[in-house]
C-alpha cells in the first residue's frame, strides 16, 4: 500500500516538474514535438529508476558507513554521470534503433536537476531500497506525463496567434503555470 502511495505521490501529487520545478530545462527545451518529448521522458524514466537503485546503496553502505555524508553531492553527481555514460554505451551496442531515438538525449540527462533532486529527496525522506526504486520510477513517470501534455499543447499552439513578446519561452511558462494549477487538484488524493 505504501508503495502505491509513493508512486502516486511522486508521479501526480508532487510532480517534480510542476511542484518542485525540477527538470525545467528539458521541459522547456525538448517539449516542442510529441515524439521527442516521449523519447526524452522514457530515457529519463529509465535513468531515474537506475539512479535510485545505485545511489541508495552508495549513500547507505559507503557514505554513512564511513561517516562522510557531506560528500553526498560529489558522490551522487559522479555516480549519475558514470551511470548515464554506461547506459549510453550499453544501448549503443545492444540496440542501435533505440540509440538513434534516445541517443542525443542521454548526455543531457546528467545535468537534469530532476535526477540529482531525486537522489537528494530520497535521502531526505529516509526511503528504504524498494521504496527508493518505486520513487525513482514514479518520478520518471510523472516527468514523462508532464512532457507529453506540454508537447501536445505546444503542437496546437503553433497555429495560435500569440502576441510577439509572449512567443517562445514566455507562453510556455504561462501554460506550465496553468498545468500546475490543474495538478493541484490531485492534492486531495494523499494526505501529508
Amino acid at each position: 500500500m505504501k508503495l502505491i502511495l509513493i508512486f502516486i505521490s511522486a508521479s501526480l501529487v508532487n510532480n517534480f516538474v510542476l511542484t518542485y520545478f525540477l527538470g525545467i530545462c528539458p521541459f522547456l527545451g525538448v517539449s516542442n514535438k510529441t515524439e521527442n518529448a516521449l523519447n526524452m521522458g522514457l530515457a529519463t524514466t529509465f535513468v531515474m529508476t537506475l539512479t535510485a537503485a545505485v545511489t541508495w546503496p552508495i549513500y547507505t553502505y559507503i557514505l554513512v558507513k564511513f561517516n562522510v555524508p557531506f560528500l553526498e553531492y560529489v558522490a551522487f553527481i559522479i555516480a549519475i554521470a558514470a551511470l548515464v555514460q554506461l547506459v549510453e554505451m550499453y544501448i549503443r551496442k545492444s540496440s542501435p534503433a533505440i540509440y538513434r531515438a534516445m541517443g542525443i538525449y542521454l548526455p543531457l540527462i546528467t545535468t537534469n536537476c530532476a535526477v540529482l533532486g531525486l537522489a537528494l529527496f530520497m535521502v531526505l525522506r529516509d526511503y528504504n531500497y524498494i521504496e527508493s526504486i518505486i520513487f525513482g520510477f514514479g518520478t520518471g513517470a510523472g516527468f514523462t506525463l508532464a512532457m507529453l501534455m506540454m508537447s501536445g499543447i505546444r503542437e496546437e499552439l503553433e497555429f495560435a496567434d500569440v502576441p510577439r513578446v509572449f512567443q517562445g519561452i514566455s507562453i510556455t511558462l504561462i501554460i506550465a503555470g496553468m498545468m500546475a494549477l490543474a495538478f493541484m487538484g490531485f492534492a486531495g488524493l494523499i494526505r501529508g
Binding site: L18, T19, Y20, F21, P163, V165, F166, I169, S170, I171, T172, L173, I174, A176, G177, M178, A180, L181, M184
Partner: peptide, 14 residues
C-alpha cells in the same frame, strides 16, 4: 504556489 512562479516568470520574460 508553484503556479504563481510560472506566471510571474512567464510575464517577466515577455
Amino acid at each position: 504556489l508553484p503556479a504563481g512562479a510560472f506566471f510571474v516568470f512567464g510575464f517577466l520574460v515577455a
